[in-house]
């Protein structure tokens, strides 16, 4: 076993996903299959190989520091499930 159902529950918590017992069971089996397949990578000796993080060599993309139009507060809030005034509203965080 690469991953237990308890680990699956923990990873789901890290990913902020509520999972049902049935889903946990299914994900545990499927994730095990996938991770076993991925183990293939360990056949390769990658000692000293620089990890590749980008498809092309990119350097910092700087631009001039000047004011441009933005979408503004009102537009930013139009899609919010719950907004009041200039703010996004969420359920209470602490008692």
């Amino acid at each position: 076993m690469k991953i237990s159902s308890r680990e699956v529950e923990y990873v789901a918590h890290l990913a902020r996903l509520e999972v049902t017992e049935k889903e946990t069971e299914k994900f545990t089996a499927q994730l095990n299959d996938i991770l076993l397949y991925i183990d293939k990578l360990n056949e390769l000796d990658t000692k000293g190989v620089e990890p590749m993080n980008h498809a092309i060599s990119v350097t910092n993309a700087f631009r001039e520091d000047k004011m441009l139009d933005s979408i503004g507060t009102e537009n930013s809030l139009t899609n919010a499930p719950d907004a009041r005034g200039e703010f996004f509203r969420v359920p209470k965080v602490i008692d």
């Binding site: 990873v11 990913a15 902020r16 996903l17 509520e18 889903e23 994900f27 994730l31 991770l35 359920p91």
Partner: peptide, 28 residues
């Protein structure tokens, strides 16, 4: 009723199973 619960239930109901599976692999 509470923020963490909102995140978790929203994402559980909002994403389909392939998306959840990939989020799980990636998070792991």
């Amino acid at each position: 009723r509470e923020l963490l619960e909102m995140y978790k239930i929203t994402r559980m109901q909002g994403f389909g199973s392939e998306v959840k599976r990939r989020i799980m692999i990636g998070t792991y």
